[in-house]
């Protein structure tokens, strides 16, 4: 906008105080690129690096536009988006701004800013609001940086709490609450995992013998006690990498992973049965149980199917019961089992 009573030259002249307030980071150069004056905030940058400003090109490297390194080329900066790097200091402070030629070609005026590096600059130079023009959004930027950090902290905390809650819920969903063993859902997912990975495993189906009598004669408290004792025994007799699950009232399933032959499966099964057979003492009452086990191996099958494995382990378990309980049976492939049926 022009006002008739003022000329352009009038418009362009300000007192140095006014210039300092309007552009606290300005730099005035003469035609030979000597620094004539500079704004107070830029002064703090120079002071911080113990610089006495003399020649522009001793102070700054012009990164953009490229190829400007001598006084004769200064005019190439005019009207361009200028990017400078301070030569002093190890942090190579980057400044950006605009350069305009002054009326009558008396020199150049550069107005600079810290750009995205404003937070670091404020910290390094201990700048205050007074170091920025009121039109500068630096303070709002600092506000936003802190607001963002505070919000991120809250979100991170919320995510941690949600993650913990999720893990607890998952744990609950996969656990049999009475015994702390895994439940059927956990068992199925573990079998899927092992089959998917092609890891070999043995599957034990274990039914407690005489458990119903304990429950009926000594009560549910005694029954619950026995189930917890059984859980303890099964945990002791297996490795931590194995899976022990309670899948029904007195029905348990064990997965022993990385097992390929029967040779040491029967000894394990025998140890389990021996431990189950030891009478348990519940508040002065003796609880006597035993267990029957049916076993099958994933390596028996070309492509193991969860349903088939369960059915076969059940068939072997049935055979153990039929043969008088308190024993373990290994599933035999088609011909012998057919005989049993």
């Amino acid at each position: 906008m022009k006002n008739a009573s003022l000329t352009n030259a009038d418009m362009a002249s300000f007192s140095s105080e006014a210039l300092d307030r309007l552009m606290p980071m300005h730099l005035l150069l003469d035609g030979r690129a000597n620094v004539i004056s500079y704004g107070p905030t830029l002064g703090r940058v120079f002071q911080h690096h113990n610089i006495t400003p003399g020649k522009f090109f001793d102070l700054f490297a012009v990164r953009r536009p490229t190829g400007v390194s001598t006084a004769r080329k200064l005019s190439a900066l005019v009207g361009e988006r200028v990017q400078l790097t301070l030569k002093a200091g190890e942090d190579s402070l980057s400044l950006r701004g605009l350069c305009q030629e002054m009326a009558g070609a008396r020199g150049f005026l550069l107005n600079l800013s810290f750009g995205i590096g404003v937070v670091d600059a404020v910290r390094a130079l201990s700048l205050t609001e007074a170091d920025f023009a009121p039109t500068d959004l630096a303070i709002e930027m600092l506000y936003l940086v802190e607001a963002k950090s505070a919000v991120m902290r809250e979100l991170r905390d919320l995510n941690l709490r949600l993650q913990e809650a999720r893990l607890a819920a998952e744990q609950q969903a996969l656990t049999d609450t009475l015994t702390g063993l895994r439940n059927r859902r956990a068992l199925e997912s573990e079998m899927h995992l092992l089959i998917g990975r092609g890891t070999s495993f043995a599957l034990f189906h274990l039914d407690l013998d005489y458990f119903k009598q304990v429950n009926d004669t000594l009560g549910h408290a005694a029954g619950d006690f026995v189930l917890r004792q059984v859980a303890e025994i099964l945990s002791i007799e297996t490795r931590t990498s194995d899976t022990v699950a309670r899948v029904g009232g007195d029905e348990f399933v064990i997965i022993l992973n990385r097992v390929e032959d029967y040779d040491f499966l029967l000894p394990i099964a025998d140890r389990i049965i021996a431990a189950l057979t030891v009478p348990m003492d519940f508040e002065g009452q003796v609880c006597k149980i035993s267990g029957s086990i049916g076993i099958t191996l994933s390596t028996n099958y070309q492509s193991p199917d969860i349903e088939v494995l369960h059915a076969d382990a059940d068939a072997a378990l049935y055979e153990s019961k039929r043969a008088g309980r308190g024993r373990a049976t290994v599933f035999q492939t088609a011909p012998p089992m057919a005989k049993l049926a």
Binding site: T128, E129, A130, I139, E140, L142, Y143, E146, A147, S149, A150, R153
Partner: peptide, 12 residues
């Protein structure tokens, strides 16, 4: 303290 700081950004 974070909130106090955010409020202090409100003015000199």
């Amino acid at each position: 303290e974070a909130l106090r700081r955010l409020l202090r950004f409100g003015g000199v």
